[in-house]
Simulated assay, not measured.
Amino acid sequence: MIERRESSLHELATVLDYIRWGASRFNEAGLWFGHGTDNAWDEAVLLVMHSLHLPLESKPEVLQARLTMEERREVMAILERRADERLPAAYLTHEAHFCGMSFYVDERVLVPRSPIGELIRGGFEPWLKVEPLAILDLCCGSGCIGIACAEAFPDARVDLSDIDAGAVEVAQININRHHLNEQVRAVQSDLFAGLHGCSYELIVCNPPYVDARDLAEMPAEFRAEPEIALGSGDDGLDFTRRLLREAADHLQPDGLLVCEVGNSWEALERAFPEVPFMWPEFEDGGHGVFVISREELLAYRQYWEPGTGDQGQG
């Protein structure tokens, strides 16, 4: 492998050479994409340009620029790590984008990719009936959802909450990065346990929701993400059941809960067939996000109790 790498370093000279080589290497390795790009070529472009400290929108002439030997080794190293370790590219660059904003990420948090970003850009219309003064990003991970909400609603106080101390540390890095310490805070909390006395007009949650079967069958790139942020019981709804039971107590009148459950949306509908969950449609792709008002949470509270519904254990 070392001899092959050294030979490639002398044979490959330009930026385009390394993009082409990286894409071929990724296809050969059978990598899985979905953490920012959806194909081997774009992934190679992302990693090569990052390694060279060049913007993705660089002029086409850059592709023919020759690399120094030091640059070649650095580019080759990051491409080989992507192929050999099956890490999402964002963990190698420590950067991901969400709602047009840049966020620091590492292995302590999921790579941002939620379709909730489209709802943020639309101000959660038509479901949000009040101007939010307080917003909670529950299971915040990197904090990308809550920080994007802070940008969309500059007069709102925003809490970022996660059960994992490492995720809270990453969220604080991103609060600092976007200079939002006066508006946004990061709190370690298991659901609402660490948020005593707090109530919100808007709670947005991208919780763990992957069911046991999907978790076991995930490609290596997804298994590189923290399991605590992915798996949630046999049907993926253990956390969501707890959230549905408790959320109304932390919402103001006319408050709104927005929650992503991904592929577990069918299990949620089977578990609570009496509840008219609203499922927004996304122009940019994505699915499995429901919205429900505080008043609806209260009206259907009997169904949230353990033992109700066809799968009501939680």
Rank of each mutant, 00 (worst) to 15 (best):
E6H: 07
D190H: 10
P126E: 12
G117K: 06
Y104A: 10
R82G: 04
V168C: 14
P55D: 09
M1G: 15
G255M: 02
R242P: 00
Y209T: 03
F282S: 06
L237V: 05
Q311A: 11
L257Y: 02
L244E: 03
R66C: 13
W127K: 07
A267F: 12
E281R: 11
V62K: 13
P60I: 08
M69H: 15
E118S: 08
L251S: 11
I228C: 13
I145P: 10
C139H: 00
D84K: 12
M278D: 14
C205K: 01
R73F: 01
P219M: 00
E71Q: 15
E283P: 00
H50C: 02
D284P: 00
G22K: 01
Y18I: 03
L56C: 03
G285A: 05
P55W: 05
Q183D: 11
H53S: 14
E70A: 15
Y303A: 12
W279C: 08
D234Q: 13
A44M: 05
I116V: 14
A156M: 10
R66L: 14
V105E: 00
S51Y: 05
I163G: 02
L46E: 12
R223H: 15
L230G: 05
V204R: 01
G36K: 05
G286C: 07
I292P: 07
R73M: 10
G166E: 14
H35G: 12
L47C: 12
A220F: 07
N181Y: 02
I175R: 04
P88C: 01
F222H: 09
F98D: 03
